[in-house]
Amino acid sequence: MLSNKMIAAVAGLALAAGAAQAQEVKVGVVLPYTGIGAEFAQLADRGMELYLKLNAEAVKPYTIKIIKRDAKNPGGADAKIATQELLTQDKVDALAGWIYSPNAIASAPIVAAGKKLAVIMNAGSLAAFQRGFEINGGKVIDAIPMGGAGAVPDFTPFFQRVKDQKPDVFFVFVPAGDHAAAIVKTYGALGMRAAGIKLIGPGDITQDTKLQAMGEAAVGLITVHHYHADLDNPENKRFVAAWKQQFGADSTPDFMSVGAYDGMAAIVHAIQATKGKMDGAAAVKSLEGWKFNSPRGPIVVDPATRDIIMNEYLSEVVMVNGRLHQKVIGQIDQVKDVCKAEKIGPCAPK
């Protein structure tokens, strides 16, 4: 008798646990939490956290459990192991993150074999820019690869070389991060604006988190990007206000945070669409053509490429009350990734 009751009790417990598990969706996040990418990981992390906080209603009746794993370095091996263990040990329902391309490349076969939804939260844009520039009659007079950081990552020699050639426009592409501020400071310090050379580039060089450190030299800088924290739309206003409340008035979100915010929104959409089951194929299917009002403006996932279609903003840096702001001076709606559409740069057929 006794043993029968015990079995019944155990079975009851198991059932309850099963029901609770159906409500919980596990999302594995692989980001470089340590090392040179740690700053990006933090920005992405906060973007995801903030989405879940601001959109608690959208998630219900499910709960999301985020399991973080450190990708450590761009070597690929650690990210691959982390991805594999998230799938096999933690049995996550969806994956997100990466940042370094070697890590994404190394993890790709495992993600594919795991048949789960995977959201990669960022992308680069050099080839696309050059293409657009040349189609419209521009001429690239000198392309200077700056390589990795040298003995002292001083941009003066490169910029000196540019200054000697007296171009009208100087386009800089650097991965966002520490170098953004150094670029603009060097531009200012060498008196290149006075020499009539305009500095332009993708929004990486005016990354929001680095903007204030650039000081006076940044005024007049023109960039094209899909996001900056000064965008004037209700979603962004809410996002930035919540960010400052959560992480401090001096802190600001940037395109990395918004990428993560939107990534989390996509995962939540897939959870609702598959009723929490998160079967890989169904989850991906549910996101084809998915529309979302992001802080970066309305976005759509292109059903053909599964890539994002979004607005690109042409912005100029202005000084308002001693703080630098980015003022939108032009906007291109619903841009597809030129790289993929025109098959150039990294998307060129091999």
Partner: peptide, 14 residues
């Protein structure tokens, strides 16, 4: 030397 080489032979990196 780093400065000079970076300016004239930027492809060489470090």
């Amino acid at each position: 030397l780093d400065f000079v080489l970076k300016k004239y032979l930027p492809q060489g990196g470090t």
